[in-house]
Design a protein around this nucleic acid. Structure first.
Lengths: 274, 274
DNA sequence: GTTCCGCATGAATCGATAG
DNA sequence: ACTATCGATTCATGCGGAA
């Protein structure tokens, strides 16, 4: 099977027009949060966030297959002591565009940012909003089943990325090495709460989310040969994981430095696939 | 110290009028979810939920002290394949009433209800929305500190003596440099994600939330002798826990059977206090 | 070849200070 | 009064070099 990765350098509001309608199986993305990544996206103000995003979600609605899924990773920031409402406003407005707000998954970040304040604790969770175009969509629940018992989460978390790469070819999907240890164990379906640590530490580039996050949703909502889109590619975590899992990938990134980084990483993934 | 428990039988829209304004330190409640508990509040339809709740939150705003906190345990249900929007609409509307949406805590239900559906997984989290009347409110963070993570045990135990002596002034403000700061520390502040199992005991009445849930918020937002209010008392979990923790309690319940159950349970708590 | 330890680094938030 | 910048505060993780 020939797997492609199409990368576009530019503003996704423009670049998305090049993507064919009803062609994408899964959109997984983490758009710049309000007031962050100022240099690349001009630092969207919280009050302007919905207005800024709606034209993009309109395009995403166009390119997604009717059976496809859109998963967006987002969290509202605190503005003058309050949680801002732009995320929940966005949900309301996207529904007016025709999106169905199917589910809200919870990403529990085990290693959240530290800090102490007189009026709040550390924020250790983010939203993963699932949107669909219709009630019936493709979902491969068996692909993300987990062994009974809570030890599984720990095992998965501690697998190094090299371990995962090495064994992917033989297993075809996901978490590789430890699969052998699951044989004979009873498996259950997971819940809508995901426990993953962020990848910080001193790598050359640290992504905003760990590879296991897009991996989980790619397994759940696509099969091999499907098309995965990330309109805010960043350093290309989603695209890279998609290709490794034998899904086609489309990535858009406005910032040349990130775009090039993504391209480099894809090269090494390609070599691995051969 | 004399601790009271005032229980009212009736519709909280009426009974709340009997509560003095600016008198309550913490409101902790889990209102009937849309379409559930049909017999008590007439089975509020999801589309009417906000409209139904706003007069109540208006009264709650009146009775709460300016330094007090309102915590509401709620989760939107699925209606025709979508998460309904009544919860996020409620947030928007309560802000118009003057409430500040300070924070959204996450209750991760470790043993959530079993089940399987073709297009979604088990729902294992609920929202705990924190509202306040002003930016400054009472919060006793030290009361809910938790043991430090396992990482510390392994690592700090073996710190060399030079590491322990090393002063931080020479290195600047780097937190990581200064590991010695963590020697002897056993407690850290929690995050905004709470991991509590639901109580599935075989009592006659199963509460909608475990006792540790109101306990955690009562510890965090009140001190002994303060007043805790639950306008949807149910079988009285919040009221009972409050009294046991030497906080005064006010509870309102519309359904006589629950009201009586709460009264019974309070009697035994009283005996315990003596 | 393990295990152990030093260390940088996070989608943070508040309060004070400065323009 | 309203915005921009800066310092202070705080944990958990994985990499890489050392034992």
């Amino acid at each position: 099977m020939e797997i492609f990765a199409k990368l576009y350098l530019g503003d996704c509001r423009e670049e998305l027009k090049k993507v064919e309608e009803n062609s994408v199986d899964l959109i997984f993305t983490s758009p710049p949060y309000a007031d962050s990544r100022n240099k690349t996206y001009g630092g969207i103000k919280p009050d302007k966030y919905v207005e800024w995003f709606l034209p993009i979600s309109e395009e995403l609605l166009r390119v997604l297959k009717s059976t496809g899924t859109f998963v967006i990773n987002i969290k509202e920031k605190v503005v003058s002591g309050e949680r801002h409402t732009y995320v929940i406003e966005l949900i309301m407005e996207m529904r007016k565009q025709g999106w169905l707000w199917t589910e809200e998954f919870m990403w529990h970040k085990k290693n959240c940012y530290p800090g102490k304040w007189p009026n709040r604790f550390r924020d250790s969770w983010e939203r993963l909003l699932q949107f669909n175009k219709q009630k019936k969509f493709h979902m491969y629940q068996e692909a993300v089943m987990i062994p009974v018992g809570d030890w599984a989460e720990d095992r998965l978390r501690k697998l190094s990325s090299t371990d995962k790469i090495r064994d992917n070819s033989s297993v075809g999907s996901g978490f590789g090495k430890n699969v052998s240890k699951w044989v004979g164990r009873e498996k259950v379906y997971p819940t809508n709460v995901l426990h993953f640590a962020t990848e910080c530490s001193n790598k050359k580039h640290s992504a905003v989310f760990p590879e296991v996050l897009p991996e989980w949703f790619i397994k759940l909502f696509t099969k091999e040969g499907d098309i995965v889109l990330d309109p805010f590619m960043g350093s290309g975590t989603t695209v890279k994981v998609a290709n490794r899992m034998l899904r086609n990938a489309i990535g858009i990134e406005i910032f040349p430095e990130y775009y090039n980084l993504a391209k480099e990483q894809l090269e090494s993934t390609k070599l691995y696939l051969l």
